Simulated assay, not measured.
Amino acid sequence: MTTVSGTVRSARGPVLIAGLSVGLLAVVLVAAGTGQVQISPAEVIGSVLHRLGLDVGPLPSVAHGESALWQVRFPRVVLAAIIGAALGCAGAVMQGIFGNPLAEPGVIGVSAGAAVGAALVIVTGLTAWGSWTVAAGAFVAGLITTFAVYLISRANGRTEVVTLVLTGVGVNAIGGALIGLLMFLADDSGVSAIAFWNLGSLAQANWTAVWITLPCLAIGLTFAFANSRKLDLLALGERSAQHLGVNVEKLRIQMIVMTALLGAAAVAFTGIISFVGLVVPHLIRMVAGPAHRVLLPASAIGGALLVIAADLAARTLVDYQEMPLGVLTAAVGGPAFFWLLRRTRTRAGGWG
C-alpha cells in the first residue's frame, strides 16, 4: 500500500506543478490589469508581446495604460512573485533541515531578525553597498537569527516542537522590542520606513527592487533544488543520512545560509510577510508528498501565486485604500498555524 500511495503521489507532482503554473499565469494577468486603471488580460498580453518586438494583440486602450502597466503594475506583480517564491522555498527548506512542519521564517523569528537588520540600516543611513545595503543588513541579521534559533532549539540531537515554537516567540519579542527602540531613535521619515517593515507592503515596489531580489531568489532556488536528494535523505533521520553519505551538519549550515538569503530577499523591500512559508509547503506536501524535487518548485510557485493574490486583495478590498499585506497574510495564516500546531501535536501523541 505504501508503494502504491508513493507512486500515486509522485505522479501528482508534475500535474500539481503544471496546475500551479497555470494558476500563477492567470493571477498575474488579473493582478496586472486590476486597479484604478482597468486593463483587460488580452491588453496585458498584447503589451508584453509588443515589448518583446512582436506586433501581436491589442495595446491598452485607456489613457496612460502602458505607463500604469510598466511603471506600477508589473514591478509590483513581479516583486510579489519573487517574494512569494522566496518565502515558499525558504519554508520548505527550513521544515526539511529542522525536521519540523512548524518551521517557517516568520514563525520562528527569522523574518523579524532580518527586519531588525534592515531597520538598523535605515536608521543609521548606511549606504556602503548602494542599493544592496538594506538587503545586506537584512541578510546578516537573518543569518545570525537563523543560527541562534538552530542552536537554541536543538536538544539531544533533535529539534523539539515546543522549543522551536517558544524560541520563535522569544525571537519575535526581542525583534519587536529592537524595532520599537529604533523607531524611538529615528526621525519622522525613519519611523515611517520602520512602520512599513512591521506591516509589510508592496506599495514601494519598483524595478530596482526586482533586479536586486531576483538574483537572491535564483541562487537560493538553484542551490536548494541541487540538494533536494540530500534533504530527502535527511528526512530519514540524521544517522541514516550520514550512513548514506550526507554530511548533515555541513548541509544544515549551507541551507541555513541559503534560507537567510531568501529571507533577506523577502523582507528587504516589503517588510515582514508571515505564514506564507508555513502554509504553502504544508499544503503541497499533503498533495504531492515529501519529495523535495517536487516540494521545492511547487512551494515556490504556490508561494508566488499566494502573495500576488493576497496583494491583489490588499489593494482592492477597500476602495481608494490599501490594506497592509503582512496583516492580511497573518489574518489568514494565523488560524492555519493553530490548525497545523494541533495536527502536529495529535500525530506526535503529545508534546514530546
Rank of each mutant, 00 (worst) to 15 (best):
N100K: 08
S228G: 02
K230R: 15
T34V: 13
T163R: 14
A11F: 11
T133C: 10
P281D: 09
A330V: 04
A118Y: 04
L234V: 10
P324I: 06
G271V: 02
N100E: 10
I212P: 04
A260E: 08
L87K: 04
L305C: 12
R345Q: 12
L143G: 08
R9P: 03
H243N: 13
A173H: 03
A186T: 04
I97P: 09
S299V: 13
S192K: 14
L126T: 08
S240K: 06
F139E: 08
G125P: 03
H282D: 12
A103L: 12
L87G: 10
V77S: 08
S21N: 05
V257D: 09
P281I: 12
A112D: 06
A331F: 13
G99P: 09
M183Y: 04
G245V: 11
A135M: 11
N247V: 02
V169R: 07
A309P: 09
A118D: 08
L29P: 07
V267D: 12
W207M: 06
F269W: 14
F74A: 12
S153R: 01
S299P: 08
A136D: 10
G157C: 08
S67H: 14
V44D: 04
T3G: 01
N206K: 06
L20H: 01
S10V: 12
A288E: 06
A68H: 07
A235G: 14
L295K: 04
L16C: 09
K250Y: 07
A32S: 15
P41G: 06
T259V: 15
A336F: 15
V121K: 13
L181I: 15
M1N: 06
T208F: 11
M255W: 03
Q95I: 02
A63F: 02
T146C: 04
S201G: 10
R342F: 07
T270A: 15
I17S: 08
W211N: 01
R285A: 02
V276S: 10
L217F: 15
G19T: 03
Q95K: 00
F275S: 11
D55Q: 06
S61C: 01
F223M: 13
V140L: 15
G99D: 13
G57H: 06
P297M: 08
H64G: 00
A310I: 09
G35R: 11
P58L: 00
T329R: 00
A264I: 11
S228Y: 03
G113E: 03
L278N: 09
H64D: 07
S192E: 12
T34K: 04
T270Y: 05
R73G: 05
E322R: 00
T34E: 13
Q254N: 11
R51V: 02
E43L: 05
I256D: 04
V77G: 14
R285W: 05
A313H: 00
V121A: 08
F223A: 14
P215G: 11
I194F: 10
G263Y: 02
V267A: 11
F225C: 10
G106D: 11
V140N: 09
V162T: 15
P281C: 08
W351S: 02
F147P: 05
A68V: 15
V169G: 09
V332L: 07
I82S: 05
A42C: 03
A86K: 02
L221K: 03
G35V: 08
V287S: 03
P215Y: 13
L25Y: 02
N100F: 00
V294D: 01
G277F: 07
V276I: 14
L102D: 01
E322P: 00
A260R: 01
